[in-house]
Design a protein around this nucleic acid. Sequence first.
RNA 1: GCCCCUGUCGUCUAAUGGUCAGGACAUCAGACUUUCACUCUGACAACGAGAGUUCGAUCCUCUCCGGGGGUACCA
Length: 526
Amino acid sequence: MSENSEKPSLPKDVRVRFCPSPTGIPHVGMVRTALFNWAEARHTGGKLVFRIEDTDNARDTDESLKMIIEALNWLGIDWDEGINVGGPDGPYYQSQRTDIYKKVAQQLLDAGYAYESFSTPEETAARNEANGRPARFGYDGYDRTMSEEEKEKFRAEGRKPAIRIKMPDEDITFTDLVRGPITFKAGSTPDYVIVRPNGDALYTLTNPVDDALMNINVVLRGEDLLSSTPRQIVLYDYLKKLGIAKQTPLFGHLPYVMGKGHKKLSKRDPESNLFLLRDRGFIKEGLLNYLALLGWSMGPDKDVFSMDELAKNFSVYDVVANPAHFDIDKAIAINAEHIRQLDTQDFIERSVPYLHKDGVVSAEKWEDLTGHEREVLTAAAPLVQTRVRLLSEVSGMVGSLLSDDEYLEPDEGALKQLKDDSGEVLDKAIEVLEAVPDGQWKADHLQELLEDELVAKAGFKPRRAFGPVRVAESGRRVSPPLFQSMEIIGKDLSVARLKNLRSHLDDVLAAKAAAQKDASKGGKKN
RNA sequence: GCCCCUGUCGUCUAAUGGUCAGGACAUCAGACUUUCACUCUGACAACGAGAGUUCGAUCCUCUCCGGGGGUACCA
């Protein structure tokens, strides 16, 4: 869709990958990376490979791995080769590929592209300091020219070498798919370790080797990996010479997702935790849509779209390079749009787990609900769908409709709706409503009746008239539309609630007055 | 220190060598209304600074400043 003469064009058969390390809980930055890779694959008709980079035993956990897979499944981000689905280049767990890395490291060594390095980090730092270089100068290449005799001496002492890649002394340039041409100056990237002295291959080796073996030709990853690109480019050159890599992939570095202030969204931020967002009531469509907006946009006037539209329109060339802040309010607003777009039945079924968690219904799944629950929810769904922005808000809206309590304790906001004349309002409402024949207990009729009796005849302002009735029926200041609610609740319970609020009214008003007095004293507790 | 990325309303972004610099979220005001929402109307609000190129720069170049990342035997 987009063109950019400064940027290289994509290969015919795009092969992208998503390769997380299974550490910690899935976070939005990770999901956004997965999403863009997915979108690029779907847009171009290419393939998405899903690999797990579990080379860091200390931090990797099975729990994390399960959560990542669950996250992708929930979101509907699917892949073509890799974990669970297999493919021609497996295994797709790096922990099962150690022999491959060992062999490649040896080939690199034999070809002279890599060398054994006996210097410990401490020794390197000490040399830097002794030579007047900052300790952070990095590795100085000391072992590169070490003679065989010296190495032999170290081995005799029982020292084991790390393996380092030789970096050429020249500028390294590549054209980033999102940032354009980037040049790293010669000498700015030291010889780096690919295998630890204990034989463990590091990310620096495993990632490019697997990408090469899995024939990945487009790498879309986080900006944090940008500065490791020059060393990978060098490694690819070596791998190509060894016949291991077909090509150097194209790189595109996606901007960070930032949290508050100028900090990368950290795992401690609750909005970074995918499952917390889901618990909060984000639906996948809304969350994904919002995440796609972080660093990309569909066009001037469109920011609510589906996954299909994303796949149709996405292009890595349109990704912007500057970091984006995660704005929970906008995320919620986008989510609300998607909730409204849901088919009503779909909406209510997706709400059921949240309702169950809040103790509002008897089961986790729609199919397991009672007939009465389903009936009420079906009637209530259209009333609440435009009134919630997150699925977790549904409970508050339908709670009073599903409860069979004959008295609902007014919450704090509801208290404010109750005035000195509320008793008269309730008396009148009870009188009028008790006389309604069962067959006429319908929202329209109730509305007509109460408007007539309370407003027109009794002269109450609508707000003053319906406020107390609402409080009686819902216990809250905010509720779904009153008359429809009363229809759903039914005559007996509706009237019972009115009567009960009426009989509690004096106490409630007294308590309210006391609370106000308290508050005006300074509001300090203890 | 050195290397690299980045800078348009508070936030996400669009567009452009010449426009009133557009939209969305948020905020505020209003309409609708039985509450709250939905919907609609309106308001507020941005090109980090300085040079240079140019008839003209938000856009091109340079410098500075701000922010971020790297400089690991993490990824």
